[in-house]
Design a protein around this nucleic acid. Structure first.
Lengths: 235, 235
DNA sequence: CGACGCTTTGACACAACTCAACAACCGTGG
DNA sequence: CCACGGTTGTTGAGTTGTGTCAAAGCGTCG
């Protein structure tokens, strides 16, 4: 059974930070005790609600977002397999953003009490959580920079390079190609653009043989050039 | 001496989350053992460098930012008295952003070892750090939403309302007025705009008697209307 | 087959940027 | 004291990237 302990994307991610003890791995395994299958379009966290749970995603895609009064939406991030989300909602008592699944998948809920118990009982594990959260925040910051100071083209290129890197870590990239269930409307809400303009940008990327998104599949033809355009520096 | 323990903006902020024990307050006080006066324009954190320290700001203003290859800059946040910054740089080993002071002030450096020791020795304190970091991240997310989905006017209005709230917490707002050392160039880098356009927006806000920024002093004339325009909801 | 969601394209409008010039302010040194 | 240069703020005219509106083409699924 010990072999099983580490066999979740999330545990693997944390292990990249510190070598967790058996007890710590057990604690992580406990979080995965009750995995549930979630349908596409499931609302996992609701902005403004209290008592929301955090989640670890074992498979599938989700998106963290905020709705605006004028009907617009801004997507913050796209949690994928091995990612944790909703932590702020737990720590701050009331969720500051919403989360919805974009595909069906498997998720494990983490109740507030469970989280604080882990942090206090296993400080090193708490630090690992902190580290993982920092990595995620780093992505959010880069996202902010993109939207603030990059053109639509640069921004889009940067986004897909980042996405590739995230998915590569969990083994979801094969030959510069990966599955990507994001529609142009969803991309627009993430990139701070219009779906129509996203379409134009994708066309340009396609025509210049840099990147193709077709039928939920992204292929990066010229990563070198994309990095030049977007100013993307790995991590 | 016990009375002194809590008498830093940072300790007061953490205490808002959990009532810290005497030992924990001592640990926080240790962080403030070596306050240093920093000049305006001091580079406290350098993006890409390893072994950077985190800081607690006792007074003055700073800004966290990232430089882009094309010479642009995006400001992430404006740490003020009581704020902590550079934590990600410590946890991720290499700083993912830079920090520079915008005014002279007083700051306390937190070395990496010191931080991890505190987290492991005082888990509850670690949780408090985590909580404070979450609050900051919440601001960054709101900032992201602003830049992605709000017009220049909405965005600027939102920014100043948020700023007012942050400064009010540390007692720096008096009669809807507060000191604000941000130039229009700095504002532009924060809001994802041009200094010239910031100027135009500020003019509009002034002419419509909503908000005035003159000689480093902001006065909010019509908070009600500003909230309507920007969709700002407190916290 | 029809209905629906997603993509694609074109013509036009507008918000924000660029360029250029000038005015106010501020600290410095003659 | 005033002259000075540098930084910051202000304004106008013209450009451009992105949004808006409208319509049609595709896939897929019931």
């Amino acid at each position: 059974m010990t072999g099983m302990r580490i066999d979740t994307p999330f545990a693997r991610k944390l292990s990249a930070f510190v070598n967790l003890s058996a007890a710590e791995l057990d604690a992580v395994a406990e979080l995965h005790a009750d995995p549930v299958v979630v349908e596409k379009g499931t609302q996992l966290v609701d902005e403004g609600q209290t008592g929301q749970k955090a989640f670890v995603l074992n498979s599938g895609w989700a998106c963290c977002y905020k709705d605006l009064a004028n009907g617009n939406r801004q997507i913050i991030s796209f949690p994928v397999a091995g990612d944790c989300f909703g932590l702020r909602g737990v720590l701050l008592r009331t969720a500051d953003h919403s989360v919805v699944t974009l595909t069906s998948g498997v998720a494990c809920a983490i109740a507030s009490a469970e989280l604080t118990r882990i942090i206090t009982d296993f400080p090193r594990l708490g630090a690992a959580f902190f580290w993982a959260a920092s990595r995620d925040e780093s992505l959010v910051v880069e996202h902010l920079v993109s939207i603030g100071r990059r053109t639509a083209l640069e921004r889009t290129a940067h986004f897909f390079l980042e996405l590739e890197e995230c998915l590569r870590v969990v083994g979801l990239v094969k030959d510069h190609t990966f599955q990507c269930p994001l529609t142009q409307f969803v991309l627009a809400d993430a990139l701070g653009l219009t779906a129509i303009h996203v379409n134009r940008v994708l066309r340009q990327l396609r025509e210049e043989k840099l990147l193709t998104l077709r039928q939920n599949e992204v292929t990066i033809h010229n990563g070198e050039r994309l990095r030049e355009i977007s100013g993307f520096r790995g991590l």
